[in-house]
Simulated assay, not measured.
Amino acid sequence: MPQTDPTTTTNTPLLAIFTDFDGTLVELAETPDAVSVPDALAHRLEQTAREFDSAFAVLTGREIADIDRFLSPLQLPIAGAHGAQRRRADGFVEPIDPASLRDAQAIAQALSPLLIAHPDLLLETKQGAVALHFRQAPELETAVRTAMEEALRAVGGFSLVPGKMVYEARPQGVSKGDALRAFMREEPFLGRTPIFIGDDVTDEDAFIAAQDLGGIGIKLGEGETAARMRIADIASVHALIQGLGDIAAREREFTPIH
């Protein structure tokens, strides 16, 4: 699939920008807390979000609070835990299904024997979702998947989603694609053309949703994908986001006032 630079187009439509976080805005790390966030990232995102009238959201497997901590003091619209959590552009945080909270805890407890036996595994228990990372013990992938499948069968109502050196349990009917569609039904996203940038299997639903709504999915890196465009690396993602913001600023500057 050819490399494409959307910033070279003219007469840019009114856009809504969506992006993943880990592996897209920041490099992957050995543990979720070990990621390094570039000093200028929050400022760059804030500038672009302002030029798009706040139609800029992060769709991530992390919790909303994690993204707020990494991008402080910036607070963007965010879908966290693959859409199990969602903060709208007006700041309202949608309530999480109490059953999902309870079942996520039950899944985490069911995984305790595996974690005790293999301390190199890392469990993330989120509000409404669970992730089991095996980056530091890749030989345990099969054991991790089997344990997760057994835990999910015990509670029901959750789906198992593979990621980069991680398996995640999320409530059925929840995805980044569903979150993107929900944002697109609301101001300031309503009526805009969505662009979603991501790098992982868990981003495929959002690529499809963006393209179903007349927009574009942009995949970072190699691998099969539904996205119609690719981008080379994280530095290129940062440049694209800044470039789109610059284009929006120029068009705003030269738009006649009636």
Rank of each mutant, 00 (worst) to 15 (best):
P194M: 03
E186D: 15
A210Y: 02
I96P: 04
L220T: 00
L190E: 11
G156H: 09
E222C: 03
P95L: 03
A206D: 04
L115S: 03
R145L: 12
Q211A: 10
G214R: 04
F207M: 06
F189V: 05
L111E: 08
V201R: 10
E150Q: 15
D205T: 12
A169R: 00
R170Q: 10
R185Q: 15
D103I: 02
I218Y: 10
L152S: 03
A131R: 01
A206S: 08
T125P: 06
T225Y: 01
P194T: 05
L115Y: 06
K176N: 06
A106I: 09
G217S: 06
E186A: 12
D178P: 00
L115T: 01
V144Q: 01
A99C: 08
G221S: 07
R102V: 09
A147W: 02
F196A: 00
E168Y: 00
I216G: 00
A147S: 15
F158M: 09
P188K: 07
G198W: 09
L190W: 12
L160R: 08
P171W: 08
F92I: 15
E168N: 07
Q172Y: 08
S100Y: 13
Y167S: 04
P119G: 11
A110W: 00
F92S: 14
R181I: 09
P138W: 12
D212S: 13
T202G: 02
G191Q: 08
L101V: 14
M148K: 00
V155N: 03
I107S: 10
G156R: 06
G177I: 02
I208V: 15
I116R: 13
P188E: 10
I116V: 15
E124D: 12
L122C: 05
F134M: 03
H133T: 08
E94F: 02
L220D: 05
G223P: 00
A108R: 06
M165L: 12
P188Q: 09
V166Y: 01
D103K: 14
R102F: 07
Q109R: 15
E150L: 14
E187R: 11
L111F: 05
D205C: 03
G217Y: 05
G191S: 09
I197H: 09
D103M: 12
Q127T: 11
E204H: 07
D178M: 11
G156T: 12
T225W: 02
A179W: 07
T225A: 11
E150P: 01
G198C: 08
Q136D: 12
M184L: 13
K176Q: 10
E139N: 10
R181S: 11
L152P: 00
F196Q: 01
V130H: 02
F134Y: 15
